[in-house]
Computed example of a mutant assay.
Amino acid sequence: MKIVDLLNPAAIVADLKAEGKNEVLAELTDAMRKAASSLDRDEVIQVLQERERLGSTGIGEGVAIPHGKLKDIDNLLISFGRSKAGVEFDSMDGKPAHLFFLLVAPEESVGVHLKTLARISKLLKNPAVRRRLMEAGDGQGIYDIIAEEEANL
């Protein structure tokens, strides 16, 4: 399953306003709800915050992949956000996060959830991809870069 098959361009925030971790989770949840309006905003945010309490999803190199599982959804949902200023996210390397993929998966899914996390990690491991995403003009530009770079994975 490709990232672009799961990521609706409407769920991309090219300029996150959030200045803290919980604000990022809320803003990306709101973006996700543009593509999946039936989601319960408070429930999604609660699940994400619970996951963050277990350990930060800030993987370093300016990247964070907050994720969680919900009972009442049928398929994996993704939103993406970019913060040019950066947000303190308790990342492994102690640096602010700039690029965020938020994933919400059905409670019983394991394989697709883990494969998608691995695919995102692989995509964002490349410094050139991270740089291109930081320099992209808008949400559609970000989506196009993800699609183009994912074809090379």
Score class of each variant (00 low, 15 high):
64 A>V: 06
141 G>I: 05
107 E>P: 01
137 G>M: 03
3 I>E: 01
95 K>P: 00
53 R>D: 14
114 L>P: 12
100 F>Y: 10
99 L>Y: 10
25 L>E: 06
23 E>Y: 09
129 V>K: 03
137 G>I: 01
98 H>V: 02
48 L>S: 04
68 G>T: 01
70 L>E: 05
27 E>L: 07
114 L>A: 08
121 S>Q: 01
70 L>P: 07
87 V>H: 01
145 I>T: 08
116 T>F: 01
20 G>F: 09
150 E>D: 04
65 I>R: 04
10 A>E: 11
92 M>I: 15
108 E>H: 09
33 R>M: 15
31 A>N: 02
41 R>G: 05
31 A>P: 07
135 E>G: 08
9 P>L: 02
72 D>A: 13
64 A>T: 05
121 S>W: 06
14 A>S: 15
112 V>H: 14
65 I>L: 14
153 L>P: 07
51 R>F: 05
52 E>C: 02
3 I>K: 06
153 L>V: 09
60 G>L: 08
19 E>S: 14
41 R>E: 13
141 G>E: 11
130 R>N: 09
76 L>T: 12
149 E>W: 10
4 V>I: 15
64 A>C: 05
88 E>T: 09
131 R>S: 15
32 M>V: 12
37 S>V: 07
62 G>W: 02
18 A>Y: 06
77 L>R: 14
126 N>S: 14
110 V>Q: 11
108 E>S: 10
